[in-house]
Design a protein around this nucleic acid. Sequence first.
RNA 1: GAUUCCGUAGCUCAGCUGGUAGAGCAAUACACUUUUAAUGUAUGGGUCAUGGGUUCGAUUCCCAUCGGGAUCACCA
Length: 504
Amino acid sequence: MSHELNDQELVRREKLQKLNELGIDAYPAAAFEVNCNSAQILAEYNDEEKNFQTVSIAGRIMSINSKGKVTFFKIQDEKGKIQLFVSIDNVCPNEDKTFYTSVVTHLLDIGDFIGVKGEVFITKTGETSIRVKEMTVLSKALRPLPVVKVKDGETFDAFSDVELRSRQRYVDLVVNPHVRETFLKRTKLIQTIRNFLNEHGAIEVDTPVLQSIPGGAAARPFVTHHNALDIPLYLRIANELYLKRLIVGGFDFVYEFSRNFRNEGMDRTHNPEFTVLEFYVAYKDYFWMMDYTEQMMEKIAIALHGTTDVPLGDKIISFKAPFKRVAIYDAIKEITDFDVSEMNEEQLRDVCKQLRIETDATMGKGKLIDEIFGGKCEGNFVQPTFIIDYPVELSPLTKKHRSKAGLVERFELFINGKEIANAYSELNDPLDQRARFEEQTKLMERGDDEAMFIDHDFLRALEYGMPPTSGIGIGIDRLVMMLTNQSTIQEVLLFPQMRPENPE
RNA sequence: GAUUCCGUAGCUCAGCUGGUAGAGCAAUACACUUUUAAUGUAUGGGUCAUGGGUUCGAUUCCCAUCGGGAUCACCA
Protein backbone atom coordinates (compact mmCIF):
# COMPACT_ATOMS: atom_id res chain seq x y z
CA MET A 1 0.00 0.00 0.00
CA SER A 2 1.49 3.30 -1.02
CA HIS A 3 0.21 6.78 -0.66
CA GLU A 4 1.44 10.24 -1.51
CA LEU A 5 3.63 11.51 1.24
CA ASN A 6 2.56 14.68 2.98
CA ASP A 7 4.99 17.37 4.07
CA GLN A 8 5.49 15.91 7.53
CA GLU A 9 6.23 12.46 6.18
CA LEU A 10 8.74 13.86 3.73
CA VAL A 11 10.47 15.75 6.52
CA ARG A 12 10.71 12.61 8.62
CA ARG A 13 12.26 10.65 5.76
CA GLU A 14 14.82 13.41 5.34
CA LYS A 15 15.59 13.20 9.05
CA LEU A 16 16.06 9.47 8.72
CA GLN A 17 18.53 10.14 5.92
CA LYS A 18 20.39 12.64 8.07
CA LEU A 19 20.62 10.18 10.95
CA ASN A 20 22.14 7.67 8.56
CA GLU A 21 24.63 10.28 7.38
CA LEU A 22 25.66 10.81 11.01
CA GLY A 23 26.30 7.07 11.27
CA ILE A 24 23.22 6.48 13.41
CA ASP A 25 21.14 3.41 12.63
CA ALA A 26 17.54 4.44 13.23
CA TYR A 27 16.49 0.79 13.44
CA PRO A 28 19.29 -0.87 15.38
CA ALA A 29 19.34 -4.64 15.72
CA ALA A 30 20.83 -4.81 19.20
CA ALA A 31 18.63 -5.27 22.24
CA PHE A 32 18.30 -2.25 24.52
CA GLU A 33 18.59 -3.34 28.13
CA VAL A 34 15.86 -1.77 30.28
CA ASN A 35 16.10 -1.88 34.09
CA CYS A 36 12.93 -0.08 35.20
CA ASN A 37 9.78 1.53 33.92
CA SER A 38 8.10 4.91 34.19
CA ALA A 39 5.52 3.90 36.78
CA GLN A 40 8.13 2.35 39.05
CA ILE A 41 10.21 5.51 39.01
CA LEU A 42 7.25 7.79 39.67
CA ALA A 43 6.05 5.59 42.52
CA GLU A 44 9.33 4.72 44.18
CA TYR A 45 11.78 7.55 43.60
CA ASN A 46 12.87 9.17 46.84
CA ASP A 47 14.75 12.43 46.52
CA GLU A 48 16.56 11.98 49.83
CA GLU A 49 17.63 8.40 49.22
CA LYS A 50 18.65 9.27 45.66
CA ASN A 51 17.64 5.89 44.32
CA PHE A 52 17.30 5.28 40.59
CA GLN A 53 20.66 6.86 39.78
CA THR A 54 21.52 4.45 36.98
CA VAL A 55 18.27 3.92 35.17
CA SER A 56 17.98 2.56 31.69
CA ILE A 57 14.58 3.02 30.17
CA ALA A 58 12.98 2.97 26.73
CA GLY A 59 9.82 4.32 25.20
CA ARG A 60 8.10 6.39 22.58
CA ILE A 61 8.53 10.15 22.47
CA MET A 62 5.16 11.76 23.17
CA SER A 63 6.19 15.41 23.43
CA ILE A 64 9.24 17.54 22.85
CA ASN A 65 9.76 20.88 24.49
CA SER A 66 13.03 22.49 23.51
CA LYS A 67 14.27 25.40 25.57
CA GLY A 68 17.54 25.99 23.76
CA LYS A 69 20.42 24.18 25.38
CA VAL A 70 18.01 22.10 27.35
CA THR A 71 15.22 19.94 25.96
CA PHE A 72 12.40 18.18 27.75
CA PHE A 73 10.90 15.01 26.33
CA LYS A 74 8.01 12.97 27.59
CA ILE A 75 8.44 9.34 26.74
CA GLN A 76 5.79 6.69 27.11
CA ASP A 77 6.51 3.10 27.98
CA GLU A 78 4.06 0.33 28.71
CA LYS A 79 3.39 1.64 32.20
CA GLY A 80 2.97 5.35 31.54
CA LYS A 81 4.89 8.51 30.79
CA ILE A 82 7.95 10.08 32.29
CA GLN A 83 9.82 13.29 31.57
CA LEU A 84 13.38 13.34 30.29
CA PHE A 85 15.69 16.27 30.97
CA VAL A 86 18.28 16.47 28.22
CA SER A 87 20.89 19.19 28.43
CA ILE A 88 23.61 19.82 25.90
CA ASP A 89 26.39 19.32 28.46
CA ASN A 90 25.03 16.10 29.93
CA VAL A 91 24.55 14.43 26.62
CA CYS A 92 27.66 15.90 24.97
CA PRO A 93 30.26 16.19 27.73
CA ASN A 94 33.09 16.74 25.24
CA GLU A 95 33.85 19.44 22.66
CA ASP A 96 31.66 17.87 20.00
CA LYS A 97 28.10 19.06 20.55
CA THR A 98 26.75 17.64 17.30
CA PHE A 99 24.60 14.98 18.93
CA TYR A 100 22.64 17.57 20.85
CA THR A 101 22.41 20.24 18.17
CA SER A 102 21.45 17.82 15.43
CA VAL A 103 19.92 14.63 16.80
CA VAL A 104 18.27 15.86 20.00
CA THR A 105 16.94 19.16 18.73
CA HIS A 106 16.28 18.44 15.06
CA LEU A 107 16.17 14.78 14.12
CA LEU A 108 13.93 13.30 16.80
CA ASP A 109 10.15 13.48 16.49
CA ILE A 110 7.06 12.68 18.43
CA GLY A 111 6.47 8.97 17.88
CA ASP A 112 10.11 7.91 17.74
CA PHE A 113 11.34 5.21 20.10
CA ILE A 114 14.43 6.01 22.12
CA GLY A 115 16.33 4.39 24.95
CA VAL A 116 18.05 6.50 27.59
CA LYS A 117 20.39 6.03 30.50
CA GLY A 118 20.62 8.55 33.30
CA GLU A 119 19.68 9.47 36.84
CA VAL A 120 16.35 10.39 38.35
CA PHE A 121 15.89 13.81 39.96
CA ILE A 122 13.15 16.36 40.59
CA THR A 123 13.02 19.50 38.48
CA LYS A 124 12.47 23.02 39.80
CA THR A 125 8.81 22.74 39.00
CA GLY A 126 8.60 19.51 40.97
CA GLU A 127 8.37 16.92 38.23
CA THR A 128 10.19 13.64 38.69
CA SER A 129 12.42 13.36 35.64
CA ILE A 130 15.40 11.54 34.24
CA ARG A 131 18.62 13.50 33.68
CA VAL A 132 19.78 11.85 30.49
CA LYS A 133 23.42 10.93 30.03
CA GLU A 134 23.09 8.68 27.02
CA MET A 135 20.43 8.48 24.37
CA THR A 136 19.93 5.79 21.73
CA VAL A 137 17.60 5.99 18.76
CA LEU A 138 15.63 2.73 18.72
CA SER A 139 13.08 3.30 15.97
CA LYS A 140 12.23 6.28 13.82
CA ALA A 141 8.54 6.97 13.19
CA LEU A 142 7.82 8.05 9.62
CA ARG A 143 4.24 9.11 10.20
CA PRO A 144 3.17 11.87 12.58
CA LEU A 145 1.21 10.72 15.60
CA PRO A 146 -1.92 12.63 16.61
CA VAL A 147 -0.91 14.91 19.46
CA VAL A 148 -3.35 14.81 22.32
CA LYS A 149 -2.84 17.33 25.10
CA VAL A 150 -4.32 17.23 28.55
CA LYS A 151 -4.56 20.00 31.11
CA ASP A 152 -6.41 19.84 34.42
CA GLY A 153 -8.13 16.66 33.32
CA GLU A 154 -9.44 18.32 30.17
CA THR A 155 -8.36 16.75 26.89
CA PHE A 156 -7.55 18.83 23.85
CA ASP A 157 -7.60 17.60 20.27
CA ALA A 158 -8.48 14.06 21.32
CA PHE A 159 -7.96 11.40 18.67
CA SER A 160 -11.63 10.55 18.58
CA ASP A 161 -12.77 9.57 15.08
CA VAL A 162 -14.30 6.13 15.61
CA GLU A 163 -13.40 4.90 12.16
CA LEU A 164 -9.77 5.97 12.39
CA ARG A 165 -9.50 4.63 15.91
CA SER A 166 -10.86 1.24 14.89
CA ARG A 167 -8.88 0.92 11.68
CA GLN A 168 -5.67 2.13 13.28
CA ARG A 169 -6.04 0.66 16.73
CA TYR A 170 -2.26 0.81 17.13
CA VAL A 171 -2.49 4.60 17.05
CA ASP A 172 -5.54 4.61 19.29
CA LEU A 173 -3.69 2.56 21.89
CA VAL A 174 -0.67 4.84 21.80
CA VAL A 175 -2.48 8.12 22.29
CA ASN A 176 -5.60 7.17 24.24
CA PRO A 177 -4.75 5.80 27.68
CA HIS A 178 -8.39 5.01 28.46
CA VAL A 179 -8.54 2.68 25.44
CA ARG A 180 -5.50 0.84 26.65
CA GLU A 181 -7.16 0.59 30.10
CA THR A 182 -10.25 -1.01 28.59
CA PHE A 183 -8.25 -3.72 26.86
CA LEU A 184 -6.16 -4.39 29.94
CA LYS A 185 -9.41 -4.89 31.82
CA ARG A 186 -10.58 -7.29 29.15
CA THR A 187 -7.45 -9.36 29.65
CA LYS A 188 -7.86 -9.23 33.39
CA LEU A 189 -11.46 -10.36 33.13
CA ILE A 190 -10.49 -13.39 31.08
CA GLN A 191 -7.63 -14.19 33.44
CA THR A 192 -9.94 -13.96 36.43
CA ILE A 193 -12.37 -16.39 34.85
CA ARG A 194 -9.62 -18.78 33.83
CA ASN A 195 -8.15 -18.78 37.32
CA PHE A 196 -11.57 -19.24 38.87
CA LEU A 197 -12.30 -22.24 36.68
CA ASN A 198 -8.87 -23.75 37.07
CA GLU A 199 -9.07 -23.46 40.84
CA HIS A 200 -12.16 -25.64 40.67
CA GLY A 201 -10.45 -28.29 38.64
CA ALA A 202 -11.75 -27.33 35.22
CA ILE A 203 -9.81 -28.41 32.15
CA GLU A 204 -9.30 -25.94 29.33
CA VAL A 205 -9.72 -27.59 25.94
CA ASP A 206 -9.61 -26.73 22.24
CA THR A 207 -12.35 -27.98 19.95
CA PRO A 208 -12.76 -27.57 16.19
CA VAL A 209 -13.38 -24.16 14.69
CA LEU A 210 -13.92 -25.76 11.29
CA GLN A 211 -16.98 -27.97 11.56
CA SER A 212 -18.86 -29.99 8.99
CA ILE A 213 -22.13 -29.49 10.89
CA PRO A 214 -22.44 -26.05 12.49
CA GLY A 215 -24.24 -27.05 15.66
CA GLY A 216 -24.97 -25.95 19.18
CA ALA A 217 -26.83 -22.76 18.30
CA ALA A 218 -29.26 -21.26 15.87
CA ALA A 219 -27.47 -18.90 13.50
CA ARG A 220 -26.27 -18.48 9.92
CA PRO A 221 -22.74 -19.80 9.57
CA PHE A 222 -19.82 -18.74 7.40
CA VAL A 223 -19.11 -21.41 4.83
CA THR A 224 -15.76 -22.36 3.42
CA HIS A 225 -14.39 -25.24 1.41
CA HIS A 226 -11.74 -27.78 2.18
CA ASN A 227 -9.87 -28.66 -0.99
CA ALA A 228 -8.26 -31.94 0.02
CA LEU A 229 -11.49 -33.42 1.34
CA ASP A 230 -13.58 -31.55 -1.22
CA ILE A 231 -16.29 -30.78 1.34
CA PRO A 232 -17.91 -27.65 2.66
CA LEU A 233 -16.84 -26.66 6.15
CA TYR A 234 -18.40 -24.12 8.45
CA LEU A 235 -16.80 -21.77 10.92
CA ARG A 236 -18.28 -22.68 14.26
CA ILE A 237 -21.32 -20.83 15.56
CA ALA A 238 -20.85 -22.54 18.94
CA ASN A 239 -18.77 -25.27 20.51
CA GLU A 240 -21.44 -26.74 22.76
CA LEU A 241 -21.79 -30.14 21.13
CA TYR A 242 -18.05 -30.75 21.20
CA LEU A 243 -17.72 -29.90 24.87
CA LYS A 244 -20.54 -32.29 25.66
CA ARG A 245 -18.74 -35.03 23.72
CA LEU A 246 -15.85 -34.45 26.10
CA ILE A 247 -18.18 -34.89 29.07
CA VAL A 248 -19.20 -38.20 27.50
CA GLY A 249 -15.48 -38.95 27.24
CA GLY A 250 -15.03 -38.59 30.98
CA PHE A 251 -13.75 -35.06 31.47
CA ASP A 252 -16.08 -33.85 34.21
CA PHE A 253 -15.44 -30.11 33.99
CA VAL A 254 -14.33 -28.63 30.69
CA TYR A 255 -14.22 -25.12 29.33
CA GLU A 256 -13.18 -23.22 26.26
CA PHE A 257 -13.02 -19.58 25.32
CA SER A 258 -14.54 -20.02 21.91
CA ARG A 259 -14.27 -17.59 19.06
CA ASN A 260 -17.59 -18.03 17.31
CA PHE A 261 -18.55 -16.79 13.85
CA ARG A 262 -22.01 -15.81 12.70
CA ASN A 263 -22.84 -14.48 9.29
CA GLU A 264 -25.36 -11.91 10.42
CA GLY A 265 -25.76 -8.19 10.90
CA MET A 266 -23.26 -5.97 12.66
CA ASP A 267 -24.14 -3.25 15.09
CA ARG A 268 -23.14 -1.87 18.45
CA THR A 269 -23.56 -5.27 20.12
CA HIS A 270 -22.70 -7.65 17.26
CA ASN A 271 -19.45 -8.45 15.49
CA PRO A 272 -19.19 -11.33 13.00
CA GLU A 273 -16.63 -13.00 15.24
CA PHE A 274 -17.08 -12.87 18.97
CA THR A 275 -15.98 -14.69 22.07
CA VAL A 276 -18.07 -16.98 24.20
CA LEU A 277 -16.94 -18.88 27.25
CA GLU A 278 -18.65 -22.22 27.51
CA PHE A 279 -18.19 -24.65 30.35
CA TYR A 280 -19.81 -27.94 31.28
CA VAL A 281 -19.82 -29.66 34.64
CA ALA A 282 -20.87 -33.26 35.17
CA TYR A 283 -23.32 -34.25 37.91
CA LYS A 284 -24.59 -30.66 38.28
CA ASP A 285 -27.89 -29.00 37.40
CA TYR A 286 -28.92 -25.49 36.48
CA PHE A 287 -29.46 -24.48 40.11
CA TRP A 288 -25.84 -25.28 40.84
CA MET A 289 -24.89 -23.34 37.72
CA MET A 290 -26.74 -20.23 38.90
CA ASP A 291 -24.90 -20.30 42.20
CA TYR A 292 -21.59 -20.82 40.45
CA THR A 293 -22.23 -18.08 37.90
CA GLU A 294 -23.09 -15.57 40.62
CA GLN A 295 -19.88 -16.34 42.43
CA MET A 296 -17.90 -15.93 39.25
CA MET A 297 -19.53 -12.62 38.34
CA GLU A 298 -18.94 -11.26 41.81
CA LYS A 299 -15.31 -12.27 41.60
CA ILE A 300 -14.89 -10.59 38.21
CA ALA A 301 -16.42 -7.33 39.42
CA ILE A 302 -14.12 -7.24 42.42
CA ALA A 303 -11.07 -8.12 40.31
CA LEU A 304 -11.75 -5.24 37.93
CA HIS A 305 -13.25 -2.63 40.21
CA GLY A 306 -12.38 -3.62 43.76
CA THR A 307 -16.09 -3.66 44.57
CA THR A 308 -19.30 -5.33 43.43
CA ASP A 309 -20.87 -1.99 42.46
CA VAL A 310 -19.94 -1.22 38.89
CA PRO A 311 -20.85 2.00 37.05
CA LEU A 312 -22.53 1.57 33.67
CA GLY A 313 -23.75 4.70 31.92
CA ASP A 314 -25.82 6.55 34.48
CA LYS A 315 -26.52 3.37 36.44
CA ILE A 316 -24.75 1.32 39.05
CA ILE A 317 -24.86 -2.41 38.49
CA SER A 318 -24.54 -4.53 41.62
CA PHE A 319 -22.75 -7.81 41.02
CA LYS A 320 -23.27 -8.84 44.62
CA ALA A 321 -24.52 -12.43 44.81
CA PRO A 322 -27.18 -13.77 44.92
CA PHE A 323 -28.94 -12.48 41.82
CA LYS A 324 -32.70 -12.35 41.43
CA ARG A 325 -34.33 -15.41 39.83
CA VAL A 326 -37.56 -14.94 37.88
CA ALA A 327 -39.45 -17.55 35.85
CA ILE A 328 -40.00 -16.32 32.31
CA TYR A 329 -43.78 -16.67 32.55
CA ASP A 330 -43.79 -14.66 35.78
CA ALA A 331 -41.65 -11.99 34.12
CA ILE A 332 -44.06 -11.74 31.21
CA LYS A 333 -47.04 -11.69 33.55
CA GLU A 334 -45.54 -9.00 35.72
CA ILE A 335 -44.55 -6.71 32.89
CA THR A 336 -47.25 -7.24 30.26
CA ASP A 337 -50.05 -8.49 32.51
CA PHE A 338 -50.60 -11.47 30.21
CA ASP A 339 -50.45 -14.98 31.66
CA VAL A 340 -49.08 -16.93 28.72
CA SER A 341 -48.24 -20.07 30.65
CA GLU A 342 -51.27 -22.04 29.46
CA MET A 343 -51.70 -20.45 26.05
CA ASN A 344 -51.63 -22.21 22.72
CA GLU A 345 -50.06 -20.84 19.55
CA GLU A 346 -53.18 -19.01 18.44
CA GLN A 347 -53.65 -17.28 21.79
CA LEU A 348 -50.00 -16.28 21.80
CA ARG A 349 -50.35 -14.74 18.37
CA ASP A 350 -53.23 -12.71 19.70
CA VAL A 351 -51.14 -11.48 22.63
CA CYS A 352 -48.38 -10.47 20.22
CA LYS A 353 -50.91 -8.54 18.19
CA GLN A 354 -52.13 -6.70 21.28
CA LEU A 355 -48.57 -5.89 22.28
CA ARG A 356 -47.82 -4.79 18.72
CA ILE A 357 -45.15 -7.43 18.24
CA GLU A 358 -44.75 -8.54 14.65
CA THR A 359 -45.02 -12.25 14.01
CA ASP A 360 -44.82 -14.47 10.99
CA ALA A 361 -46.12 -17.88 10.05
CA THR A 362 -42.82 -19.67 10.73
CA MET A 363 -42.94 -18.84 14.44
CA GLY A 364 -43.88 -21.64 16.75
CA LYS A 365 -45.09 -21.38 20.33
CA GLY A 366 -41.62 -21.08 21.83
CA LYS A 367 -40.53 -18.45 19.36
CA LEU A 368 -43.65 -16.38 20.07
CA ILE A 369 -42.95 -16.44 23.80
CA ASP A 370 -39.38 -15.49 23.08
CA GLU A 371 -40.61 -12.56 20.98
CA ILE A 372 -42.84 -11.33 23.78
CA PHE A 373 -40.09 -11.60 26.34
CA GLY A 374 -37.46 -10.10 24.05
CA GLY A 375 -39.67 -7.30 22.84
CA LYS A 376 -41.33 -6.22 26.07
CA CYS A 377 -39.52 -7.64 29.06
CA GLU A 378 -35.79 -8.18 28.84
CA GLY A 379 -34.99 -4.47 28.80
CA ASN A 380 -36.44 -4.19 32.30
CA PHE A 381 -33.79 -6.35 33.90
CA VAL A 382 -31.03 -3.88 34.59
CA GLN A 383 -29.63 -5.50 37.72
CA PRO A 384 -28.28 -9.03 37.18
CA THR A 385 -31.27 -11.36 36.96
CA PHE A 386 -31.64 -15.02 36.09
CA ILE A 387 -34.66 -15.62 33.90
CA ILE A 388 -35.49 -19.29 34.32
CA ASP A 389 -37.67 -22.14 33.05
CA TYR A 390 -38.08 -21.54 29.34
CA PRO A 391 -40.60 -23.28 27.08
CA VAL A 392 -39.31 -26.50 25.60
CA GLU A 393 -39.77 -25.45 21.97
CA LEU A 394 -37.04 -22.86 22.27
CA SER A 395 -34.46 -25.12 23.80
CA PRO A 396 -33.68 -28.25 21.81
CA LEU A 397 -30.58 -29.11 23.86
CA THR A 398 -32.06 -28.65 27.32
CA LYS A 399 -33.38 -31.19 29.76
CA LYS A 400 -37.10 -31.14 30.47
CA HIS A 401 -38.07 -29.51 33.73
CA ARG A 402 -38.15 -31.93 36.65
CA SER A 403 -41.65 -30.79 37.70
CA LYS A 404 -43.14 -28.24 35.30
CA ALA A 405 -44.62 -29.67 32.13
CA GLY A 406 -43.75 -27.96 28.86
CA LEU A 407 -40.71 -26.22 30.33
CA VAL A 408 -37.01 -26.90 30.41
CA GLU A 409 -34.33 -26.35 33.03
CA ARG A 410 -32.74 -23.33 31.48
CA PHE A 411 -31.74 -19.87 32.59
CA GLU A 412 -30.46 -16.77 30.92
CA LEU A 413 -28.63 -14.09 32.82
CA PHE A 414 -29.67 -10.54 31.99
CA ILE A 415 -27.68 -7.47 32.91
CA ASN A 416 -28.62 -3.98 31.83
CA GLY A 417 -31.41 -5.46 29.74
CA LYS A 418 -29.01 -7.57 27.70
CA GLU A 419 -28.52 -11.31 27.63
CA ILE A 420 -25.11 -12.19 29.01
CA ALA A 421 -25.31 -15.90 29.58
CA ASN A 422 -27.42 -18.91 28.66
CA ALA A 423 -27.31 -22.14 30.64
CA TYR A 424 -29.06 -25.47 31.00
CA SER A 425 -29.39 -28.68 32.79
CA GLU A 426 -28.12 -30.41 29.68
CA LEU A 427 -30.31 -32.86 27.85
CA ASN A 428 -28.60 -36.24 28.18
CA ASP A 429 -31.49 -38.51 27.19
CA PRO A 430 -30.48 -39.64 23.70
CA LEU A 431 -34.02 -40.59 22.68
CA ASP A 432 -35.43 -37.25 23.78
CA GLN A 433 -32.55 -35.47 22.07
CA ARG A 434 -33.29 -37.28 18.82
CA ALA A 435 -36.94 -36.27 19.09
CA ARG A 436 -35.96 -32.65 19.72
CA PHE A 437 -33.72 -32.61 16.68
CA GLU A 438 -36.57 -33.97 14.64
CA GLU A 439 -38.72 -31.10 15.91
CA GLN A 440 -36.04 -28.75 14.66
CA THR A 441 -36.13 -30.41 11.27
CA LYS A 442 -39.85 -29.75 11.13
CA LEU A 443 -39.29 -26.12 11.99
CA MET A 444 -36.71 -25.95 9.24
CA GLU A 445 -39.19 -27.37 6.77
CA ARG A 446 -41.68 -24.79 7.94
CA GLY A 447 -39.18 -22.08 6.94
CA ASP A 448 -37.35 -21.30 10.16
CA ASP A 449 -33.83 -20.63 8.91
CA GLU A 450 -32.48 -20.65 12.45
CA ALA A 451 -33.51 -24.20 13.26
CA MET A 452 -30.72 -26.58 14.20
CA PHE A 453 -29.19 -29.28 12.04
CA ILE A 454 -29.21 -32.88 13.28
CA ASP A 455 -25.79 -34.00 14.41
CA HIS A 456 -25.82 -37.78 14.26
CA ASP A 457 -22.40 -38.20 15.78
CA PHE A 458 -23.51 -36.13 18.75
CA LEU A 459 -26.53 -38.40 19.16
CA ARG A 460 -24.24 -41.42 18.96
CA ALA A 461 -22.14 -39.93 21.75
CA LEU A 462 -25.23 -39.42 23.91
CA GLU A 463 -26.23 -43.01 23.29
CA TYR A 464 -22.97 -44.10 24.85
CA GLY A 465 -24.13 -42.16 27.89
CA MET A 466 -23.56 -38.66 29.17
CA PRO A 467 -23.79 -38.03 32.91
CA PRO A 468 -26.24 -35.39 34.11
CA THR A 469 -24.48 -32.15 33.33
CA SER A 470 -25.00 -28.45 33.54
CA GLY A 471 -23.45 -26.12 30.99
CA ILE A 472 -23.33 -22.43 30.24
CA GLY A 473 -22.30 -20.00 27.54
CA ILE A 474 -21.24 -16.51 28.56
CA GLY A 475 -20.86 -13.68 26.04
CA ILE A 476 -17.45 -12.39 26.91
CA ASP A 477 -17.50 -9.29 24.72
CA ARG A 478 -20.75 -8.11 26.22
CA LEU A 479 -19.59 -8.89 29.70
CA VAL A 480 -16.49 -6.81 29.05
CA MET A 481 -18.73 -3.99 27.81
CA MET A 482 -20.66 -4.07 31.10
CA LEU A 483 -17.54 -4.06 33.18
CA THR A 484 -15.69 -1.36 31.27
CA ASN A 485 -18.67 0.94 30.84
CA GLN A 486 -18.66 0.76 27.05
CA SER A 487 -21.77 0.97 24.92
CA THR A 488 -20.41 -0.52 21.68
CA ILE A 489 -18.76 -3.86 21.02
CA GLN A 490 -16.07 -2.29 18.84
CA GLU A 491 -14.73 -0.52 21.91
CA VAL A 492 -13.96 -3.89 23.51
CA LEU A 493 -12.58 -5.62 20.41
CA LEU A 494 -9.01 -4.75 19.50
CA PHE A 495 -9.72 -5.12 15.80
CA PRO A 496 -13.45 -4.94 15.15
CA GLN A 497 -14.65 -6.00 11.73
CA MET A 498 -14.67 -3.15 9.21
CA ARG A 499 -15.19 -2.85 5.51
CA PRO A 500 -11.82 -2.98 3.80
CA GLU A 501 -10.36 0.36 2.85
CA ASN A 502 -10.27 1.24 -0.83
CA PRO A 503 -7.04 0.17 -2.49
CA GLU A 504 -4.95 3.18 -3.35
C1' G B 1 -31.56 -4.62 5.14
C1' A B 2 -34.37 0.45 6.27
C1' U B 3 -34.09 5.53 7.90
C1' U B 4 -30.97 9.53 9.07
C1' C B 5 -26.51 12.36 9.82
C1' C B 6 -21.42 12.89 8.62
C1' G B 7 -16.61 12.83 5.35
C1' U B 8 -12.41 20.12 4.71
C1' A B 9 -4.35 20.17 6.52
C1' G B 10 -0.98 14.65 10.12
C1' C B 11 -4.98 15.37 14.51
C1' U B 12 -9.38 18.24 16.38
C1' C B 13 -12.59 21.50 14.06
C1' A B 14 -14.58 26.59 11.57
C1' G B 15 -16.20 27.88 6.66
C1' C B 16 -23.62 32.21 6.85
C1' U B 17 -27.97 32.32 1.62
C1' G B 18 -22.61 29.27 -4.58
C1' G B 19 -17.15 33.64 -6.10
C1' U B 20 -11.30 27.55 -6.04
C1' A B 21 -10.32 27.72 1.89
C1' G B 22 -9.21 29.22 7.76
C1' A B 23 -7.92 28.31 13.32
C1' G B 24 -5.48 25.51 17.35
C1' C B 25 -2.15 21.60 17.94
C1' A B 26 1.53 19.10 14.93
C1' A B 27 5.61 20.45 11.11
C1' U B 28 9.87 23.88 9.31
C1' A B 29 13.49 28.05 10.67
C1' C B 30 15.44 31.19 14.51
C1' A B 31 15.84 32.61 19.91
C1' C B 32 15.95 30.73 24.91
C1' U B 33 20.26 25.70 30.24
C1' U B 34 14.37 23.59 34.66
C1' U B 35 9.76 23.55 30.71
C1' U B 36 5.03 21.23 31.30
C1' A B 37 -1.43 22.62 26.71
C1' A B 38 6.15 26.26 27.50
C1' U B 39 6.81 31.13 25.03
C1' G B 40 8.01 34.66 21.03
C1' U B 41 8.83 35.74 15.68
C1' A B 42 8.55 33.99 10.76
C1' U B 43 7.27 30.02 7.19
C1' G B 44 5.34 25.78 4.62
C1' G B 45 1.29 22.41 4.30
C1' G B 46 -5.28 21.04 1.18
C1' U B 47 -7.64 17.50 -6.41
C1' C B 48 -12.54 20.34 0.43
C1' A B 49 -14.04 11.30 0.19
C1' U B 50 -14.84 9.84 -5.29
C1' G B 51 -17.57 10.44 -9.95
C1' G B 52 -21.29 12.95 -12.52
C1' G B 53 -24.97 17.13 -13.02
C1' U B 54 -26.92 22.36 -12.57
C1' U B 55 -24.23 27.11 -13.13
C1' C B 56 -20.31 32.14 -16.18
C1' G B 57 -18.39 29.89 -11.63
C1' A B 58 -19.47 24.33 -6.74
C1' U B 59 -16.12 22.83 -0.54
C1' U B 60 -21.19 25.01 -0.63
C1' C B 61 -26.99 23.07 -4.52
C1' C B 62 -28.69 18.08 -6.91
C1' C B 63 -27.71 12.72 -8.12
C1' A B 64 -24.81 8.36 -7.71
C1' U B 65 -20.80 5.63 -5.49
C1' C B 66 -17.34 4.60 -1.40
C1' G B 67 -16.41 4.83 3.89
C1' G B 68 -18.18 5.82 8.89
C1' G B 69 -21.66 7.11 13.03
C1' A B 70 -26.65 6.94 15.17
C1' U B 71 -31.61 4.74 15.28
C1' C B 72 -34.69 0.53 13.81
C1' A B 73 -35.19 -4.72 12.24
C1' C B 74 -32.52 -9.81 12.96
C1' C B 75 -29.08 -12.28 15.82
C1' A B 76 -25.21 -13.12 21.08
